[in-house]
Design a protein around this nucleic acid. Structure first.
Lengths: 198, 198, 198, 198
DNA sequence: CATGAATGAGTATTCATTCAT
DNA sequence: CATGAATGAATACTCATTCAT
């Protein structure tokens, strides 16, 4: 790090923040929020314990930043250029496969979001973010029901079933220690489409 | 409590052990394992903090007893007199509605099991119990696939989808602050059957 | 402590609270509030660190309890049956010698009160207590001035001079490592009376 | 500071060392030694936190330098060209009013010295400096007593009373949020002379 | 020289567990 | 048996100090 060219991973300032976020994400998934000690996060991130407090106000602030960043990333990926006028079948496939793409690339981030969905330490901004995303998804479902493409019934029920099944796919892979494969995602998509189609 | 009436505040828990188990179950669901203090459990159970250690070796032992008892109760309810020779359609309905019955009657116990599925403090016996139940369910699926009644594909995938969807139903209710209704369970059952049928 | 008569110092519950208060008083005088670590207080009091929090909500609460109790004790001793109608000369002697009595018997308590007079962590109740005592003393001064017995000038100035001189007596003793003697208190009283008499 | 203008925010402190000393003096008075963080001093001084350690070995060294410099300044002002052969009345007036001058011009420095009189982190040199000044003052008192101009009694007692009263004047002003006025200093001087004169 | 990001030892406080009653 | 006061190890967080730039 003395020579002016050797840019190592550890040397760039932004990397410390990222290292902390990454280590915390992993540990929160493995042991939960209260089960993870801040010095553990520091150790896994390869920084001093005090350094965490240069980047985040508190342990709560840290978990909220992670949630916010991942949720935003997820929402953006799922909804950017959403084919609002396409047939329901295609809309469903698009959403499902985009979610699959995110979950496959960031399995821990996905599990993290699931686990912290309703944690008491989520701040108001994150609660609002969560609610907003839910509304967006629900609107898609309602519109599709109005077109007669989906089964009738409470939209929240349909949403719960589909999202639950999606999480179930990931879980079944995690329990087998494997990464979800594309083929499985496509099969699951087919299955769930037949579940909800009118 | 010194008076001869012996009418306690609590709905007559069979004994202190039950009171502790009930209080701990509730608190672990509300605040998580690490988020719950042992004296809190004692207070809600209406016993002294030290008393908990007469019935359970440690906080970890306590959470494992709860998991074991609830999982066993659930497995028994779901599988007793399982109609092994009935048509797959009926088998599925039976399993789903029995699970629904359990989850509706013991929502906290069900959520508790979901939350602690892969907790690092679950002991080996519980991990084995979990695995055994999984095998039992999987066998049912494999047999049904062999009969050509269910879609092909990894049994664990089908299982994950169905169990995930089931949890999703509960979640959608919890998020609306309602109890899952029978009608919704039946609708969901219909939906998921169409998902997995061949 | 098993026999029902051997009442030892450490055995009585109230003693722990007193031990903590005493140890904290000493340490706050020796090293200041921020310079004293809670475990140090615990060690000198002969209790576990956690025990302090069974008796006091926080380190701040502890310092406020000490201040409140000592100030109240001081105020009571100084003002009980105050000879409101006696000649000013006697009133002054009474106050001075009562204060001297308190300061001689509780030198650390007195120094403690001096040091924490305007500490930022004193709570509102203590600020009010302090103000009330000040008003009481000031009223005595004003009345004596009105009778023409004391020099004219701002009452707060007279009060400041007298109280400052009183503290100065204690300091001069503390610096010599001695306890203020009765003879010195009487001499100082005579000196300060001649200072303020009309 | 690279530009040729060199007009800084601060009232042109001779240099960074002075800025640090001034900021530290203020903060130590406001919040105490342990209550003041080194980076706070740096910020108020308008320098980097690390810079403080180029001028002072440690926080303790810093507080000792302040004490030493202020005490020396005070002693010099009070004692330079002291009228050793003048009448006691004039000697007292001279000392008192010089002290008043210092305290009025440097109220924070004066309060600082009072607060740190017996701080455990004062080094040996400062303890000696303090003792030396005390001896010097005491010699003046002893000589005056020998001339029969002051009351008999322990010199340290007389000194304590006078110095205590002096501090009391400042306190009474501080508590009223005012600066000590010249008239009050003269009145107080008169009062204290009558206190100690034979 | 000056800086401030980084550090880790140290702080107040909590909580699982014990044990005298 | 049941209790809850007492404990001290562990936690989140702060801050004096260092050192690469």
């Amino acid at each position: 790090m003395a020579t002016h060219e050797t840019t190592k991973r550890e040397a760039r300032p932004a990397d410390k923040r990222e290292a902390i976020l990454g280590a915390a994400l992993e540990l929160f998934v493995e042991r939960g929020f209260y089960g993870t000690a801040v010095p553990e996060i520091a150790e896994r991130a390869g920084v001093g314990a005090g350094t965490i407090y240069r980047y985040f106000e508190s342990k709560e602030a840290l978990v909220n930043v992670i949630y916010r960043e991942e949720k935003t990333r997820f929402g953006r990926l799922a909804l950017v250029d959403f084919p609002a006028t396409a047939p329901t079948r295609e809309q469903f496939r698009t959403l499902w496969m985009r979610m699959a793409e995110f979950a496959t690339a960031n399995p821990k981030a996905f599990v993290f979001m699931e686990l912290h969905h309703h944690a008491p330490y989520l701040d108001a901004q994150n609660v609002a973010l969560e609610a907003q995303l839910l509304v967006t998804f629900t609107n898609v479902v309602v519109a599709a029901q109005a077109r007669g493409d989906l089964k009738q019934g409470p939209p929240s029920l349909l949403m719960g079933i589909v999202m639950g099944a999606f999480v179930g796919v990931i879980r079944s892979c995690v329990e087998h220690g494997t990464t979800p494969e594309h083929a499985n995602w496509k099969l699951a998509e087919q299955i769930m489409w037949e579940a909800i189609r009118a």
